[in-house]
Amino acid sequence: MKGNNLRIKDIGEFALIERLVEVLGPAGRGAGQGVIRGIGDDAAVLQNNPGTRLLASCDMLVEGIHFDLSYFTPRQLGWKALVANLSDIAAMGGRPRWALVSLGLKPEMKVSFVEEIYAGIAELAGKFGVTIVGGDTCSSPERLVIDICILGEAYRAEVAYRSGAHEGDLILVTGKLGAAAAGLAYLREGGKAAIDGAEELRQAHLKPVPRVKEAAILIHSGMVGAMNDISDGLASELHEIVQASGCGARIWTERLPISQATALMAAHTGVNPLDWALYGGEDYELLLTISGEKGSPLKARKLGRTLAKATGTPLNFIGRILPLSGTVEMVRPDGEIEPLLPEGYNHFKE
Rank of each mutant, 00 (worst) to 15 (best):
V21D: 05
E22P: 00
V23S: 05
L24S: 06
L24H: 08
G25T: 02
G30Q: 08
G32D: 10
Q33P: 00
V35F: 08
D41P: 01
D42N: 05
V45R: 14
V45Q: 10
L46R: 07
P50G: 06
P50N: 07
G51P: 14
G51V: 11
A56N: 10
S57D: 15
S57T: 14
C58Q: 14
D59C: 09
D59F: 13
D59T: 07
M60N: 07
L61R: 11
E63K: 13
H66N: 15
H66T: 03
D68Q: 12
Y71L: 13
F72G: 05
P74A: 12
G78F: 05
W79A: 07
K80A: 02
K80C: 02
A84N: 05
I89M: 03
A91L: 05
M92S: 12
G93K: 12
A99R: 06
L100F: 04
S102L: 05
L103I: 09
G104D: 12
K106F: 07
V111A: 10
F113H: 04
E116L: 11
E116S: 15
I117W: 05
Y118I: 14
Y118M: 13
A119S: 14
G120R: 01
I121E: 01
E123F: 00
F128Q: 02
G129S: 03
G129A: 10
V130A: 08
V130D: 02
T131H: 03
G134A: 11
D136Y: 09
D136S: 11
T137Q: 03
C138Q: 13
S139E: 13
E142F: 05
R143G: 01
V145F: 11
I146M: 03
I146N: 01
